[in-house]
């Protein structure tokens, strides 16, 4: 594992991910600012969201930024990590180098998924922290008010005092990390079949986007339970005034099930495959 951490640290992937997320958050800030400007006739006071005449502050900005980022941006980095760890090492020959040492395949696989999982968790925390920081500096924090709308953050108005909202956002970190774990595991599985990291990442991202779209379209509601993307935003339940822990736990367990299923398939393939 030490070796994998060192290799990850020396690779450009963490830096690329960090700068990409910085750019994304900046883009979101610009987006909200220009929207507010157009809707308030030039008075850019960040007072309205596009859903309703709700109170908008730094916490709302952080939450919305994280919502979009965790569902559409972070899975790309998860797919990239899965592709790099298995397919990337296979193509570069580094996998052969590891396999010609006295280490079991399970040890190699375990080290890689652990490092990739920790990296993904750090990315989740980074995005969350960055959104909160930008929200604080650009707008200022306050109480969190959420209203029903197209983002489906809530079915009825929720008001959370600032301290409670911040604690809930802290809980989002491990919860969303679990969500991200699933596309990471799927990417690992694909990566054990495909030798080219480009193809592995492309396939993983395409599959994720397809499933995400299907799970968001009401027309496909019968298929939704079968796609892990339907549960990835389960952490929204943490922003109810009274959290329904049974529902949140159930979604978390489903995601964990999907994740470990992909992981089991990936390890089964990795254990038996030949290295050409």
């Amino acid at each position: 594992m030490r070796l994998e951490f060192l290799r990850l640290w020396r690779a450009r992937r963490p830096l690329v991910a960090a700068f990409s997320l910085l750019f994304f958050v900046a883009l979101m800030l610009v987006g909200f600012y220009t929207y507010a400007q157009s809707k308030t006739g030039g008075h850019a006071e960040f007072r309205y969201t596009f859903e309703n005449r709700s109170y908008f502050n730094g916490l709302t900005f952080a939450l919305y930024t994280f919502y979009f980022g965790s569902l559409l941006v972070l899975p790309i980095f998860a797919a990239t990590e899965g592709g790099a760890q298995i397919a990337g090492d296979t193509q570069s020959g580094a996998m052969k180098l590891l396999l010609t040492r006295p280490v079991e395949r399970g040890g190699i696989f375990g080290g890689k998924i652990l490092v990739a999982g920790i990296f993904s968790t750090l990315l989740v925390g980074f995005l969350l922290g960055l959104g909160l920081l930008c929200g604080l500096l650009a707008v200022g924090w306050g109480d969190l008010d959420l209203y029903p709308g197209v983002l489906q953050m809530t079915e009825r108005h929720q008001h959370l005092p600032q301290e409670v909202a911040l604690r809930r956002l802290a809980l989002v970190w491990p919860a969303a990390s679990l969500s991200l774990f699933v596309p990471l595991c799927m990417s690992f599985w694909i990566s054990t079949w495909v030798r080219s990291p480009v193809n592995a990442v492309g396939t993983a991202v395409s599959l994720y986007l397809m499933m995400y779209v299907v799970s968001e379209i009401h027309f496909f509601q019968e298929l939704r339970p079968w796609f892990f993307t339907s549960y990835m935003a389960y952490w929204r339940g943490l922003f109810q005034a009274e959290i329904d822990w049974a529902e949140v736990s159930q979604s978390a367990l489903r995601l964990a099930g999907f994740g470990f299923a992909f992981l089991a398939l990936a390890f089964r393939r990795f254990r038996r495959r030949e290295e050409f």
Binding site: L3, L6, R7, A94, L97, L98, P102, V103
Partner: peptide, 24 residues
């Protein structure tokens, strides 16, 4: 094996030390 597969981002010392330490 040839061509020699190596960990590009590591130094020569790190490369040897970490590889030799794998599994032992």
């Amino acid at each position: 094996f040839a061509p020699p597969p190596l960990f590009e981002g590591l130094t020569a010392h790190e490369h040897i030390a970490h590889l030799a330490g794998l599994g032992g």
